[in-house]
């Protein structure tokens, strides 16, 4: 990963922190479109966008950082969102590498996103079980997840560059 991509990814992490903080704004309920109660999961957006950059410790560290911020803002056990984000990143990478080798007919990016999200939710559930969270997986979490996936294709270039040359 080149220094330029690292810097770009860092700004992506800052953007994720801003999205996470904005999600705690009560006035958003008053906006004229239905955002109430549903908000994209910032750490997932960063993790999903980092998948196409390949395996990178820098990306993992930034995901953990954003995850910690989300833990504090969301009153979650410290490390829960960070662990979940890392699960998204790891599982997405494995799926991407695996499916790229299997067949060209499989939409690799979409499948890796989907697998990443499923494993991320499982990671969040495990984190909740370990640290004492209760009823972590519910419909509102899935609503947030759908919102995240829907938004991913629009905002992903802001988090990490779409450039095949940087794939390692």
């Amino acid at each position: 990963m080149t220094p330029t991509v690292r810097v770009r990814l860092f700004f992506g992490a800052v953007l994720a922190v801003i999205i996470c903080s904005l999600g705690a704004t009560p006035a958003l309920q008053l906006l004229p479109f239905p955002l109430t109660g549903v908000w994209p999961i910032a750490v997932f957006l960063l993790a999903l966008s980092s998948i196409r950059l390949g395996l990178s410790i820098w990306a993992a560290v930034l995901i953990v950082f954003v995850g910690f911020v989300q833990d504090f803002v969301g009153e979650a056990p410290i490390g829960a969102w960070a662990f979940s984000g890392l699960c998204v990143y790891g599982a997405g990478l494995m799926a991407r590498n695996g499916f790229q080798a299997m067949a060209s007919s499989i939409p690799v990016e979409f499948v890796s996103l989907l697998i990443g999200c499923v494993v991320g939710v499982l990671g969040l559930s495990i984190a909740g079980d370990i640290a004492g969270g209760a009823n972590v997986i519910d419909t509102s979490l899935f609503a947030n997840l759908v919102w995240t996936l829907g938004l991913y294709y629009f905002v992903s270039p802001l988090f990490a560059p779409y450039d095949d040359k940087v794939i390692v």
Binding site: L55, S56, I57, A60, V61, V64, P77, I78, G79, A80, A82, F83, L86, C87, Y89, G90, A127, I130, A131, G132, V168
Partner: peptide, 23 residues
């Protein structure tokens, strides 16, 4: 990239440890 993979797994295990002590 064995070092990077080991690093990723190491961070994951460290986070699990962090979650465990919060019980």
């Amino acid at each position: 990239r064995f070092a990077a993979r080991a690093g990723l797994v190491g961070i994951g295990i460290a986070l699990l440890g962090l979650l465990m002590i919060q019980s």
